Amino acid sequence: MAKRDAIFPAGRHALYDLHRYSPAIRCGDLLFISGQVGSREDGTPEPVFEDQVRRAFANLRAVLAAAGGGFEDVIDVTSFHTDPQTQFATVLAVREEEIGAPPYPAWTAVGVTWLAGFDLELKVIARVPAAKGNGTASQG
């Protein structure tokens, strides 16, 4: 079985410790990133939805960077939305800025009723070859 390494970004968030999970697990060249929300460092949500979306992407970018990767390494995204009908245009606009040019990753959007006080969550699988990574795996 391949070794699993926990990946933590430099600006560690309170939610990781509060809810006892790793932001990402590297297994070989694959990086499995836990759902990233628009959390400030203290674990509270950004109150304005667009700011929360931007913060969720920033938190995702930080986890990717800690593994030596970026959005170009993302293979699959699952996004969870508390009110997709009213929120989706904002998410798509920020996504366009963050994800960049094609080819785009696979993406599944799911409407949910609860995200612990947040309105958007981004769960990602990326391929970041170990040779590309900077070896910043951490056990927490």
Rank of each mutant, 00 (worst) to 15 (best):
V37I: 13
R127Q: 14
G11Y: 12
D51N: 05
A89M: 10
T108Y: 09
E50Y: 01
I75T: 12
D29M: 06
F80Q: 00
F88Q: 13
Q139N: 13
L92G: 09
A126N: 05
P105C: 10
V48C: 03
D76F: 14
E121P: 08
G68E: 03
K123R: 12
V63D: 01
E96K: 15
L18W: 11
E98R: 13
A101W: 08
F32L: 11
N59K: 02
F8G: 04
A137M: 10
V112F: 00
L115K: 05
Q36A: 06
V48P: 01
M1T: 07
T90Q: 09
E97M: 09
E46M: 04
A65P: 00
L31E: 01
V77I: 15
A65I: 04
K3N: 11
V37S: 09
V48F: 00
S34P: 01
A6Y: 08
A130V: 13
A65W: 01
V112I: 07
K3S: 12
I33T: 01
E41Y: 09
L18C: 06
A62C: 07
D29S: 10
V112D: 04
R20M: 07
A62E: 14
P47N: 04
T108V: 14
V94I: 15
G38F: 02
L60V: 01
D17G: 13
D29Y: 09
H19T: 06
V48W: 00
G135I: 03
Q52L: 08
E96S: 13
E50P: 06
V124D: 01
D42N: 15
C27D: 13
V74D: 04
E97D: 15
L60A: 04
A56S: 09
G69Y: 05
R55C: 03
